[in-house]
Design a binder for these strands. Structure first.
Length: 542
RNA sequence: GCGCCCGUAGCUCAAUAGGAUAGAGCAUCAGCCUUCUAAGCUGAGGGUUAGUGGUUCGAGUCCACUCGGGCGUACCA
């Protein structure tokens, strides 16, 4: 629809060259009275042409070459909007497209041949994934889906660090629990990992090795076992949500392959770093930052910045055209340094898209639950999935803009699960499947040759909405906004339910019934495709 | 103090690069099932978009300040 008008205006630009100076925009008006598409071009031109916008609008309309079999009406409204009204036939063509493309309808090849990397979750293996990680996991996976739908070849990646203090403490936590099981009197430090899973791992080691590990140190088998077991659980939790990472990137490999050394050398050669107080500093002030930052501590250990920069260099070397990093707002101070470092080395940081999601506040029985992995007072992602189901979890996290703080009321989520919007969508799908089952028994078949019969308001509205799906997917993907898909589907489902209430298939004349059956079939496909982007199932029966 | 994010209906959230009368769901109230799934539909009430100024044809959206909340602000990651 927009393309159609765009072409018309391109021709018009030959007559009115000023059109090339503005960004032409077609909007879908909120109110149907204002047509199917609307443009504010006349208002934007009024300054350049020094004329009243309504006059310009009239000039534009008179100069456009209109095919009246496509466009039924054009009008000037309000301060100078030009509103276009399309004929219903124009919209019904979409049904053929939907049915022939079926599960691929909505995909586009705009970014075909491009490679994208989506890095998400990236939690260090110190404990089970919590509800907080859930938002990251679900949104990251859905963004990856969206990018695939617009043509990208996408790698899902998980970056982790199994060195460092956190992991040492983890290993020692297991060691102490193990010694406890051997009957030793242990004072378990408060800042160690308190979770039950630590005891489980210790028990496992006891069963396997007996007391042979009494004199092992924390960094050895204790840490290794903990890491292995915890990762196993993390992958299982993600699997429960149908999330599978293709690449698990270990920070340590950067050291082993000498990437850190190389990077450090490069910074020095380019005179981007210097030594002070026994530490190595990166000259960020020269890049317009407030202050220089340490990249190697006086102890000789790098800070997170160095490996993070080295890590992103590997992504560039792996040839990605787009790199998405998704993390929580607690990281919002770290990425600018990393990007600045990359930029100083000449990398095109525009290829990196850093997405920050705000925190999830968990409410339980009307109170905020403060969560900490170390203190073990968290709610795990597994518990949440067990409680409300995979589909609800995926839908719930996807349906909100990531820049908004999110309240997750567990009590309410459980109680209201029947009224969750995801059921509304699934119900629409199941309802259509049921209709198809029933009317097939009456020997009705979808007929794609009489679609002009679909001209009631309920049908036309539905058709218009179907026409927008592809555009919506593209928009959501390019802006990394998963919630748009949810809102689109809810609107589509609402229009379908309305259609269902007022326009029957059984009992209508055969031609109409079969055209409606074609329509309903198309709606079913779009709902299913939309849900599949979100990673939510589309049941045939409920 | 400084940086990022946020403040929209009783609650949870939308509002497509500034567009026309700010929209949904939940909750509340009133209706709709002898024919395709009532997990549905129709209607009603509910708003000074936190506040004050500014920018312009036009502001929830942009700018400034104020108030309130979240996350940061390390030679932790």
């Amino acid at each position: 629809m927009k393309e159609y008008l765009q072409n018309l205006f391109n021709q018009l630009a030959l007559k009115i060259p000023e059109l090339n100076e503005i960004t032409l925009q077609f909007d879908i008006p909120k109110s149907e009275e204002h047509g199917d598409l609307s443009t504010n071009a006349a208002m934007l031109l009024s300054k350049k042409l020094k004329k009243n916008p309504r006059e310009i609008a009239k000039l534009i309309i008179d100069s456009l070459e209109i095919d009246s079999s496509v466009i039924s009406k054009i009008e000037i409204a309000g301060p100078g909007f030009i509103n276009f009204f399309f004929r219903p036939v124009f919209f019904s063509k979409i049904i053929n497209e939907i049915v022939s493309e079926n599960e691929n309808f909505g995909r586009s090849d705009k970014f075909k041949g491009k490679k994208a990397n989506v890095e998400f979750v990236s939690a260090n293996p110190t404990g089970p994934l919590t509800v907080g990680h859930g938002r990251n996991a679900v949104v990251g996976d859905t963004i990856a889906n969206l990018l695939e739908w617009i043509g990208y070849d996408v790698d899902r990646e998980y970056y982790f660090n199994n060195a460092g203090r956190q992991m040492r403490v983890l290993g020692d936590s297991v060691r102490l629990r193990y010694l406890e099981l051997l009957g030793e009197m242990i004072e378990f430090p408060e800042d160690y990992y308190q979770g039950e899973y630590i005891k489980d791992i210790a028990k496992m080691l006891l069963n396997e090795y007996g007391d042979k590990l009494r004199n092992e140190d924390a960094e050895g088998i204790f840490k290794q076992t903990a890491e292995r077991e915890i990762f196993k659980d993390i992958k299982k939790s993600l699997n429960n949500l149908n999330i599978i990472h293709k690449i698990f990137f270990n920070e340590n490999s950067l050291y082993e392959e000498g990437k850190i050394e190389q990077l450090l050398k490069k910074f020095k050669e380019k005179n981007l770093s210097y030594e002070k107080d026994g530490a190595v500093w990166l000259k960020l002030t020269e890049l317009g930052k407030e202050q220089d930052k340490v990249i190697v501590k006086s102890t000789g250990e790098p800070t997170y910045r160095l490996p993070d920069i080295a890590y992103h260099i590997t992504k560039f070397e792996r040839g990605y055209d787009l790199m998405v990093d998704l993390f929580g707002s607690d990281h919002n101070a770290t990425y600018p340094d990393v990007l600045a470092g990359l930029q100083s080395l000449g990398y095109d940081v525009n290829k990196i898209k850093v997405l920050i999601h705000q925190f999830v506040t968990i409410m339980k029985d009307g109170e905020v639950v403060k969560m900490s992995t170390r203190k073990a007072n968290y709610i795990t992602l597994d518990e949440l999935v067990d409680e409300v189901g995979k589909d609800v979890v995926r839908y719930f996290f996807n349906m909100r803009n990531i820049s908004s703080h999110m309240n997750f009321d567990l009590t309410l989520a459980k109680k209201q699960s029947d009224e969750n919007p995801v059921f509304y969508l699934q119900y629409a799908h199941a309802r259509i499947c049921s209709i198809i089952r029933t009317v097939t028994k009456e020997n009705l078949q979808p007929d794609y040759s009489n679609l002009h019969l679909l001209d009631s308001p309920e049908e036309v509205q539905l058709l218009k909405k179907l026409n927008l799906f592809k555009e919506e997917v593209l928009y959501a993907a390019e802006n990394f906004e998963t919630h748009r898909i949810c809102f689109y589907l809810e609107e589509l489902a609402a229009l379908f339910h309305k259609f269902y209430t007022f326009r029957r298939i059984l009992g209508s004349e055969r031609e109409i019934a079969e055209a409606r059956l074609a329509l309903v079939n198309a709606v079913k496909i779009v709902i299913k495709n939309g849900l599949s982007i979100l990673g939510v199932s589309a049941p045939e029966q409920m």
